[in-house]
């Protein structure tokens, strides 16, 4: 499985492009807000941050399966069990999204100010979000890659599935922004972890069937 992970890592062509994508989106947001001559209020700051993350996540993960050539998939098939492939993809995507999110957050804070009062909770929440996005989107991109109009399908399938997660994430990060105690977001965080586990487990079980075609 570790080997598989390394395979993913070796063809990280998307990485630089994605970093630039996040960077330029943040910059565009900064420019549009500075027209008004000021920083956005905290709720808008929060909402904008998650929208940027959502779009870059969809774009980043979509590369995973869509760029895979048929021959290479067959090659993997002879080497490793499908479970290893999906776990490696999820792990790689989670790390990729985590990296993107942290770089994005740093840039975002740099240009749009930092209203976060409970930084540990906020960063932990971002990490959970990256993991959740990765496990949802990896299977969705696998499904979409099989269809004819994959790019549209990726968005159509992915967005509704991500909304429950996104609602919880935005709620917790709003709590972190307001500097609420950890107890206030505990139940939401637990639900997030549970949702991640469900989605991860279902992907793990279903991927072998997807793989065969």
């Amino acid at each position: 499985m570790l080997k598989d992970f390394r395979l993913e890592w070796r063809q990280r062509a998307a990485l630089n492009g994605m970093l630039l994508y996040v960077g330029s989106t943040v910059f565009v947001c900064f420019l549009s807000f500075s027209l008004k001559g000021g920083l956005p209020p905290a709720p808008a700051w929060n909402a904008l941050f998650w929208i940027i993350l959502l779009f870059s996540a969809v774009n980043a993960v979509a590369k995973g399966f869509l760029q895979e050539s048929r021959g290479r998939m067959l090659y993997y098939y002879t080497l490793v069990p499908p479970q290893a492939v999906i776990l490696a993809k999820i792990a790689y995507n989670a790390l990729l999204l985590l990296g993107l999110a942290l770089v994005g957050l740093a840039l975002y804070v740099l240009v749009l100010g930092n209203p976060v009062q409970n930084t540990a909770l906020f960063v932990g929440n971002v990490a959970l979000g990256a993991l959740g996005f990765a496990s949802t989107l990896t299977l969705v991109s696998g499904i979409a890659a099989k269809a004819a109009n994959s790019n549209t399908l990726m968005v159509v399938l992915g967005f509704p599935l991500m909304i429950p997660m996104l609602l919880l994430l935005i709620k917790v990060s709003k709590n972190a922004l307001d500097g609420l105690e950890f107890e206030a977001s505990q139940s939401s965080l637990l639900t997030l972890v549970a949702l991640n586990l469900i989605v991860g487990a279902v992907s793990y079980l279903l991927f072998p069937f997807l793989w065969r075609s």
């Binding site: 949802t136 299977l139 969705v140 499904i143 099989k146 269809a147 399938l157 599935l161 429950p164 949702l195 469900i198 989605v199 279902v202 992907s203 279903l206 069937f209 997807l210 065969r212 075609s213």
Partner: peptide, 14 residues
């Protein structure tokens, strides 16, 4: 049939 069955299970879980 196969892929929509996969998505159906996934959709139910979420």
């Amino acid at each position: 049939a196969r892929i929509s069955a996969i998505y159906n299970i996934f959709a139910f879980a979420t």
